[in-house]
């Protein structure tokens, strides 16, 4: 490509791409700058590593980072694990498959916070689930499900909300594999598991990676589910960031957490995607 052509294309892209880059870039820039002491809202603006030192040195930060990573990894992998069998099951249309498909995708249309409150109603101390368990006689007293320490409530909500997205991506990819290719694998002696490992998974790895990345990033930055249904002894990164800002007015420290969260999103998403590909290569045979 000649320079002229390259420049022409760049110029044509500017109105759309340029705007996006400026918007995203400026936010990113301010967050990074703020974390190093600039744009200080409550004192002198000057370069400083103090905020990073303070935040990284705090025990709470480490716990938040670990917790958010844990929620994000389990949510991303769990969504894929549930979505794959469903996508394969719905590969070929059958009576009622349209209805089943729509029902499975319905959570995409329910706002997360609404879902979280519905969930609370079910698992609350005097909620539907406990009432039911006591009615059946399985338990004598209500059990504390709400805000459980392992974050299972949050993971459940993440899966509920994100699995449909993974399903959407994987269904398209799985349907793109021709019947004859799958039949050929069968004919050559591959049972259901071997067909998945050696044919279906490798041919849909890009959709799988896209789903992992999108879900990981979303779940790592979760605020709403964590605040409503999450454990009370640990904060998610987003929650911690807001906490630093609102409770103490520590904008610069909040910015440090924000930048770290972006870092987590990037590293985790790429890590998961890379892992998916490596695993498949290992599993090829």
């Amino acid at each position: 490509m000649t320079l002229r052509r390259t420049l022409t294309i760049a110029a044509l892209l500017t109105p759309g791409l340029g705007l996006i880059l400026v918007m995203v870039g400026s936010v990113f820039y301010i967050a990074v700058a703020q974390s190093f002491g600039y744009y200080n809202l409550s004192g002198d603006s000057a370069f400083s590593l103090d905020h990073w030192r303070d935040v990284l040195g705090s025990k709470q930060f480490g716990r938040s980072l670990g917790y958010s990573a844990y929620i994000a990894i389990i949510s991303a992998l769990g969504s894929i694990a549930i979505a794959y069998p469903l996508a394969i099951w719905m590969r070929k249309p059958f009576r009622g498959s349209l209805v089943v498909g729509s029902l499975l995708k319905a959570p995409l249309f329910v706002p997360g916070l609404v879902a979280a409150f519905l969930f609370l109603n079910v698992v609350a101390y005097h909620g539907v689930l406990n009432q039911f368990l006591m009615w059946t006689g399985l338990t004598d007293a209500p059990i504390r499900f709400q805000n459980d320490r392992n974050g299972f409530g949050v993971i459940f909500l993440q899966l509920w909300k994100n699995m449909p997205l993974a399903l959407l991506l994987l269904t398209g990819a799985v349907q793109g594999i021709s019947d004859e290719v799958v039949d050929a694998a069968r004919d050559l002696g591959a049972g259901p598991l071997a067909r998945f490992r050696k044919v279906i998974a490798p041919l849909t790895v890009q959709a799988m990676q896209a789903a992992l990345i999108i879900i990981f990033i979303g779940a790592a930055g979760d605020f709403a589910f964590q605040v409503t249904a999450g454990p009370t002894n640990v904060q998610s990164m987003a929650q911690y960031m807001v906490f630093l800002k609102t409770s103490f007015g520590r904008w610069n420290q909040a910015a440090v957490v924000g930048v770290s969260l972006m870092g987590l999103a990037l590293v985790g998403a790429l890590g998961l995607a890379g892992l998916a590909r490596l695993t498949l290569r290992g599993l090829k045979w």
């Binding site: 021709s178 290719v181 050929a184 002696g189």
Partner: peptide, 17 residues
């Protein structure tokens, strides 16, 4: 099919891409 001693040549070839 995976247990039958037959092998099929498909019209579309059906090679693993």
């Amino acid at each position: 099919p995976e247990k039958r001693d037959t092998a099929m040549c498909f019209q579309s070839y059906a090679l693993f891409p």
